[in-house]
Design a protein around this nucleic acid. Structure first.
Lengths: 192, 192
DNA sequence: TATTTAATTGCCCAGTCGGTCAATAATTGA
DNA sequence: TCAATTATTGACCGACTGGGCAATTAAATA
């Protein structure tokens, strides 16, 4: 039981180290040795817990998404009205600990690998499906059914676009500006 | 004079080859040898015309942007009203030859390198500045000055977000859907 | 304690990549 | 025509990478 625990701990440490290296170095620079060093271990240990580099970053992507997902879900639990649910999704996606240039850059690096890594593509699909599902559960109470799909896509595209800009380290784009962008969109698009 | 011509031709061929390889292989897979092979030349010739791989892809990015820029400008020339100018910018950015999964993926790959390549960052900045400038020249006639900046950012984010999605090879996202997304945003945001 | 099992390391390997360079082919100009 | 310049090639190098592996250490179990 403790044996499995150690392996679980190591795997988590290495996933997180991988994502952190990704933030600073991008995918090309995120070498197994750097990940190991960042986790305070030797390179060999990384391939002891993950079959390959691909598998490591696949789990790193899952972990990072889980973290964001939990933040959104925590906010969703507090929400009671459809409007509050929308706010929860949006604010969750722009929490200070997530909406940072380095983290957005890490996501960008992962997205760039998606077309050549089916596993990453699968994860990406799940992420978007969840986002859409969350949005729809709020939108159906605020809009005619026929419009929901389009608005959900627009919100997703807006979030992605703002994250992209942040990932480019465009200096002017603060969390507040991003949030007000999202709120303004809703203000004009959702009837009240 | 013909000497310079040959070098100009080769450089253009290699820039384009580099961007085309980028579409299929991403940045990590876009090796000098593959670019050379794709252009029907040897690897040595690439470094004869470009000082380094970085410089090559820097020029590839410029070239690709120039192409898109020209498409937008051509449409802008035909436009007379501010509304038509907005349409021109948007339709230019979603022409069939640009809004393709492989091309969006190439852009994504370049964006992922921006934080670690100052030259790419510089180009990216220019691209966004031009986009903003184009948008503002139309928006100032359609909206109160105070709102223009925000709307220009929203349009840019929407475009980027849709391009990102296309770059992820998300199958459902066609040009028509993307265009109708943009039009719907304008419909609700711009008074008439 | 003795033995088995897991964790961890350091070194090695084969392959790849960006980049250099000397040699050759082609082109130009006088 | 002939020298000088340019274009082009292909072999080569050093650096680095992902991955494999045998050896060592630590832990757990009986």
């Amino acid at each position: 039981m403790k044996l499995t625990k150690i392996s679980a701990i190591r795997r988590k440490e290495l996933r997180q180290a991988a994502f952190e290296v990704l933030q600073q170095e991008g995918m090309a620079g995120a070498t197994l040795e750097k990940v190991a060093a960042h986790a305070g271990a030797s390179k060999g240990i990384v391939l002891h817990y993950f079959r390959s580099k691909q598998e490591l970053f696949e789990h790193a992507m899952r972990e990072a998404n889980l973290s964001l997902s939990e933040a959104v879900n925590a906010r969703l639990k507090q929400a009671t009205t459809p409007c509050e649910r929308l706010e929860a999704i949006i604010e969750g996606n722009f929490e200070e600990r997530f909406f940072r240039p380095s983290i957005c850059h890490a996501w960008l690096s992962l997205c760039a690998e998606v077309p050549r890594e089916p596993q990453l593509a699968r994860i990406q699909k799940v992420i978007h499906a969840r986002m859409r599902s969350n949005l729809m559960s709020a939108l159906v109470h605020l809009l005619p059914r026929a419009e929901c799909e389009a608005v959900a896509l627009a919100i997703t595209a807006l979030i992605d676009g703002l994250w992209l800009r942040a990932g480019l380290q465009s200096e002017g784009l603060t969390r507040d500006i991003a949030l007000s962008q999202m709120r303004e969109y809703l203000k004009y698009r959702i009837p009240r």
